[in-house]
């Protein structure tokens, strides 16, 4: 990003920092805007959605987009636009829930591995390899099948395969941090191992953790969509984007294409936004990986 490096930040106020970074990463700003709209519509879905997403209406069955039904209606006569807005809640819950659990547990495991080492590290490493030998979707498929379809279980099923991915990165990070002079120094002053870990090592793993977590946001949404597409994700009555897509895909590819186009567009747009944001965050927080 050589275009903006000539003018650095002059003042250090928050606003100017934001402004500086916004100019530096225009794509990131676009991503942030998409994500803000997404999060706000999820939170305020009840107010934003023009119609009740659950109310059926025989007369409006498969109504084409336009008029009352901005993006058309599904077979049950439910408003697609309102359902998409409420569906944002499911995607948001899955994205945040699975990412938080996945990176939280993953970071803890990674930290423990890097720190305790020995047989514990060895054992966890082997378990991690087992996880990585299985495709993520296959893992999630088997886990949702065993836990049963519900929002909570879908989040767990998507979070579990994330743990090894995160723990691996954090572990190697911790291993290199342990050798850093300031950590050595802290130990020399007589600080306990755990205090060193929490005060000096943990904060320094935060940047890569944030970068990693943002990168995973989008993939969790995609996994939920794929699971729902295969009939194993978040069940009715929650309007999940993936399921809206899968059910209409079976029937209305030609007779009511809006039922296929809009949910897919919603998924793609949000994942796209989170990827843009993730890229920008990586550039800003983790200069080593910068393009």
């Amino acid at each position: 990003m050589s275009t903006t490096t000539a003018t650095g930040p002059v003042t250090h106020g928050l606003m100017s920092t934001v402004w500086y970074n916004a100019r530096r990463y225009p794509l990131g700003v676009a991503g942030a805007i998409i994500m803000i709209v997404f999060v706000l519509s999820a939170i305020f879905a009840t107010w934003v959605a023009p119609l009740d997403p659950f109310s059926t209406n025989a007369k409006a069955s498969l109504a084409a987009p336009g008029g009352t039904y901005l993006m058309g209606a599904d077979m049950m006569g439910r408003d697609v636009f309102s359902r998409l807005i409420h569906g944002a809640r499911v995607s948001l819950a899955v994205a945040i829930g699975a990412t938080m659990i996945g990176s939280g547990v993953g970071a803890a495991v990674g930290l423990a591995c890097g720190y305790i080492g020995g047989w514990f590290d060895l054992l966890v490493q082997r378990v991690t390899e087992v996880f990585q030998a299985l495709p993520l979707l296959v893992m999630a498929l088997v886990i949702t099948a065993s836990l049963g379809p519900s929002l909570r279980n879908t989040i767990i099923a998507i979070a579990i395969p994330l743990i090894p991915i995160v723990s691996r990165v954090i572990r190697s990070n911790v291993l290199s941090l342990r050798e850093m002079p300031y950590v050595e120094a802290a130990k020399a002053t007589g600080m306990s191992e755990w205090r060193v870990a929490i005060i000096h090592v943990l904060p320094n793993t935060l940047a890569p953790l944030i970068v990693l977590a943002t990168a995973q946001l989008g993939s969790t949404i995609l996994t939920e969509a794929s699971l729902s597409f295969l009939g194993l994700g978040v069940p009715e009555p929650y309007p999940s984007w993936g399921r809206m897509l899968s059910e209409s895909a079976a029937e209305y590819v030609r007779t009511a294409p809006w039922l296929v186009i809009y949910p897919g567009l919603a998924i793609s747009l949000v994942v796209f936004g989170s990827n843009l944001l993730g890229d920008a965050l990586r550039d800003a927080l983790d200069p080593r990986q910068r393009d």
């Binding site: 794509l27 969509a225 597409f229 897509l245 895909a249 897919g264 793609s268 843009l276």
Partner: peptide
């Protein structure tokens, strides 16, 4: 920029949706 947006959108689209869009276009 165009290519980067294109590649990012490739990472953002569910592959089954892309498949469905292609099917719809073929139809």
């Amino acid at each position: 920029y165009a290519l980067r947006v294109l590649s990012l959108s490739g990472l953002s689209m569910p592959s089954f949706w892309l498949g469905l869009l292609i099917l719809m276009a073929c139809v």
